[in-house]
Design a protein around this nucleic acid. Structure first.
Lengths: 238, 238
DNA sequence: CGCCTATTTGAACCGGGTCAAGCATTGTGG
DNA sequence: CCACAATGCTTGACCCGGTTCAAATAGGCG
């Protein structure tokens, strides 16, 4: 099993926190206990309020992390790409997931149980340190998001969301969406409605700041878009 | 100096992360390197964008942590009470503070430099673990806040803010504010305007949910207030 | 006591959420 | 392969909550 298709040694995600520490001999036994899960597009693999069942890493694929309100409104907190963590904070005192997670395309997930994770963290200080830094950075991002949603206009929020998506998924430089996100999803991330997202995107296209190839949209010039919101984010890269 | 008025051994903050680990012999030398700073009410001791100068703990007093926008709008991210941390994420890659912090009453601060802190974290895994848990919980709170600001009405946001303040500063059960917070400050935390805070508080008083003794306000019945927003927060205690 | 600031209340305005209708696109089954 | 249903996208119009502006009142402090 160690030489499975999805084992950590042959994994391509160099930025994965676990991958970074595979040289530690302590970890090697624990890696055998990893679960690999294939998750179809659209499927929910973490349910807010359900008992915590360890930590997930995205091996390949994409997912969204969100909170749901009673009126059916969703707040997407972040999108997740190859190598990134989902379902964190599954140790500490908390015993229920505080977020939901859904695959937005077919995704391979690596899962470590609570016990295995705890074992790792208690025995590999460098790993714990990396986790600490990870959470600290996530906290930064989240706090920037609080300010974004509280103070920006809808146009600014949508631009901010598009820039984030571009950073996250826009490796091929001319087409924005490596992911196919619905207007609704962009709205749920930006903190507005799908109509507003559509209006803003329409305007941006007319202004020559965005282009559209079929359903996919692409940012013509990232710097021009950034200008509109730069005043709010001294320390972006969120 | 070790037996200073503010040394960690005689400190009353049992929940302070440093205090929890004073038994570690490694830490004892480092504790000598702690700086103690007296900060008058209203004074700013962390400036967003300035180089990071270590980590602060509130020995005694109260402070607010915020981000500032160009239009003079402020977003208060959290209030800080005895024993709590401010100015975190002062290690990692980041080298500038991403938040500002001001004393909201006369405050004694304990400060550890970047070097001392790093030394501690690299040598006391249990401390690093506690820091990791701390950030994970803060992240939870912040993500709840994102949803709160994005989805709640003004009335709900103000109630949520009052409940938070009560949890944070409301030890004496009948009077809410152990702190004297301005309406503006409550608004900057809740994500609205001072006028809306005033209107909401007025309504709540008329409805018998709040009482006012001079400037200070008190929550008559916490449960009744919680009911109005409980539908949004399955996992409150934020 | 008097100035200055914070609080309160009223009124007007407007951004953006909501509703509704039309259009485009995708998918599905006959 | 087409018809048609279902879903998502787009646009326009309306309306309301909440921000903004302004003015009056109360409170705090030298």
């Amino acid at each position: 099993m160690l030489t499975s298709k999805y084992d950590c040694f042959s994994c391509a995600n160099q930025n994965c926190l676990i991958k970074k520490h595979t040289s530690s001999e302590f970890i090697q036994e624990l890696l055998r206990l990893k679960n690999t899960i294939a998750c179809k597009k659209g499927r929910q693999f973490i349910m807010e309020g359900a008992p915590i069942n360890g930590l997930f890493f995205v091996h390949t694929g994409k997912a969204k992390v969100l909170k749901t309100g009673i009126y059916g409104k969703e707040q997407i907190l972040r999108f997740v790409n190859d190598g990134e963590i989902i379902g964190h904070r599954g140790f500490g005192t908390r015993e229920k997931y505080s977020i939901s997670a859904l695959a937005i395309e077919d995704t391979i997930l690596c899962n470590f149980s609570n016990e295995v994770l705890k074992e790792m963290l208690q025995n590999i200080p460098a790993l714990t340190y990396d986790f600490m830094l990870f959470y600290a950075e996530e906290l930064n991002r989240s706090e920037i998001k609080v300010k974004t949603i509280a103070h920006m206009t809808v146009r600014e929020k949508v631009i901010d969301a598009l820039l984030y998506i571009n950073r996250k998924f826009g490796e091929n430089h001319k087409e924005l969406l490596n992911v196919q996100l619905s207007r609704q999803e962009i709205a749920d991330f930006a903190g507005t409605t799908d109509e507003q997202v559509i209006r803003t995107i329409s305007s941006l296209k007319k202004e020559g700041l965005l282009k559209a190839v079929g359903k996919k949209i692409g940012i013509i010039n990232v710097e021009n878009l950034k200008k509109e919101i730069s005043e709010h984010n001294y320390f972006l890269d969120s």
